[in-house]
Amino acid sequence: MRIAVMGAGSWGTAFGQVLCDAGQEVTLWSRRPEVAAAINDDHRNHDYLPGLDLPAALGAVSDPRAALDGAEAVVVAVPSQTLRENLSQWRIDTETTMISLAKGIELGTGLRMSQVIEQASGHDPNRLCVVSGPNLAREIAERQPCSTVVASPSAETAAQVQQWCHTRTFRAYTNTDVIGCELGGATKNVIAIAVGAGVGLGMGHNALASLITRGLAEITRLGLALGAAEHTFAGLAGLGDLVATCNSPLSRNRTFGEALGKGRTVDDILASTRQVAEGVKSCRSIVDLARAHDVEMPIAEAVVRVVEGAATPVQMLDQLLSRSAKPER
């Protein structure tokens, strides 16, 4: 398969390597010419996966037309809030299979990433697929074993994508619950910020486990309100992704929250890295989506207050602990 991966950040690059390992012909598109040049000349992505060798077969370009020319499938690996703008600049054949790595909810519309692709590019939903799971990019690029979920309304499309990316170290499972997989991938980033803030404040394992568990309850409530299958949230795209993102120092959202807990400001943290912490951008849109469906998400709402400067991490913790006692379910 000739596959274009649009986005040469850490996740896009790592997934491009997976596709190469599975025998596909892959071209990475990088917005920055110097990143593309380094991938071609040094077989390294110095900015996003420093110190790791990439396959010689993994080529890169900075012209989107060159990446998309002749592509039979297109992987979108750009930040969620820039996805619509990027799609408006790319010419992608609607018969091409589209695979989304983006995890977020669009600000202003409340749309999931597959919905943005469908709306912006005119693709049939049955030709769309999302990839979600405990997929920390650096571990994948190191070829450490992991699992993921490829989800599409079409079981046939999901099975096709599974075949394209299944390797000895990257185990792909199929699912037809796109709503659940996308919501799990988007909302776990917000919960990870809260957990990271707890780490930065010196909270113990009991408190952090409570945040993760109650966070999963919030994610599940929102998913069920939007038509997702409950069992999805007990799987790789739900609990699996949540645990990895909340616990690993490789997680951008967890480390962002930890820095907040240690007293750094949002602007200071954002200015210190090229990496995008999707939960910072999507927390507001997730809370707005929840409110529109009368779903209570107190942890996500607390994260929004901190990110928007209306509360400190200490105040966030106090607000969560002062909530009234109630049954677990």
Rank of each mutant, 00 (worst) to 15 (best):
A244K: 00
D294H: 15
A302G: 14
G223M: 10
A228S: 15
W90P: 03
A22G: 14
R171T: 11
N189D: 11
E218N: 05
F256A: 06
L183M: 07
P134F: 02
E308F: 10
P79S: 07
K281S: 14
R112Q: 13
D63E: 14
R32N: 14
L211R: 02
N126Y: 11
G12P: 03
V35Y: 01
V131G: 00
S285F: 02
H46C: 11
K103N: 03
A36W: 04
K103W: 10
V199K: 12
V190G: 05
S121Q: 13
R329E: 14
T97G: 06
T82C: 05
I140H: 08
Q119V: 01
E156C: 08
P33V: 10
T255Q: 12
R2Y: 03
G202V: 10
V304K: 06
I286E: 01
G110A: 04
E218S: 07
G223L: 05
M1F: 09
G204L: 06
G59F: 04
S324A: 15
E182L: 09
P50G: 09
L317H: 01
R32S: 14
S324M: 09
L320V: 04
V149Q: 03
L216F: 09
A77E: 01
A77Q: 05
A300H: 02
T174Y: 09
Q162M: 14
G9W: 03
R252T: 11
A244T: 13
T82F: 14
R221L: 09
H123A: 10
R323G: 13
A237V: 11
L317C: 08
Y48Q: 00
S80H: 09
R91E: 13
L183C: 06
S154V: 10
G309W: 10
L211P: 01
L101G: 00
R252H: 11
